[in-house]
Design a protein around this nucleic acid. Structure first.
Length: 173
DNA sequence: CGCCAGATTGACT
DNA sequence: GTCAATCTGGCGG
């Protein structure tokens, strides 16, 4: 299981390191497992794409400890992020796509994966390092990483902050 | 409380 | 490729 030190780094590093890791979601007596195949890094005020940096509760959540789960609602979908960096830095990594390991719902999109794993506001602000409903495991798998500009973001930075497993078919469009 | 933007998706040209 | 439905949070009145 991944500990806080894993998240306590630059979001770009965490986004890359997250690829290939196993996301475990426990619902009652069911356990769903999926491999992370696509992520995006988000920064603080210097990042115009992040609505979460505009203020309010989301900004506050992004400034919390690394490893905090941040659930963000847009266009009737929930998007899940993990807070990264040191406390107060307001940085996060967005999960964009997963490869299902022991179930078959499509997870090739940020809104789809939250739906498949039944992730909602209940997990907002929970600590992924100490949560018994959602956590991450190191699969030990090495992934070939590719990068691109972020998707769906209107005001993107001039930097490639989207990372995905090269050749994997479960990435978003 | 109303208005608006937005890190989306699915259907359609 | 384009388009609009649909919901939540932020902000102004």
């Amino acid at each position: 299981m991944l500990q806080r030190d894993f998240f306590n780094r630059d979001p770009e590093i965490v986004a890359k390191a997250l690829l290939g890791k196993t996301l475990v979601r426990k619902i009652g007596n069911k356990t769903l497992k999926a491999k992370i195949v696509e992520t995006e890094a988000y920064y603080d005020d210097s990042d115009p794409a992040s609505r979460a940096c505009k203020g309010g509760d989301l900004r506050e959540t992004m400034s919390m400890d690394a490893g905090t789960i941040l659930v963000y609602g847009v266009h009737n979908n929930w998007l899940i992020n993990f807070v990264t960096g040191k406390e107060g830095s307001a940085q996060a990594v967005l999960l964009r796509a997963l490869e299902p390991l022991n179930f078959s719902e499509r997870c090739n999109g940020p809104g789809l994966l939250t739906k498949a794993l039944k992730i909602g506001k209940e997990l907002h602000k929970k600590d992924v390092c100490e949560c018994n409903e959602l956590w991450l495991e190191d699969s030990g798998e090495k992934i070939e990483i590719a990068s691109s500009h972020r998707i769906g973001v209107k005001k993107d930075l001039a930097k490639n902050l989207r990372f995905f497993a090269k050749g994997n078919k479960c990435t978003s469009r």
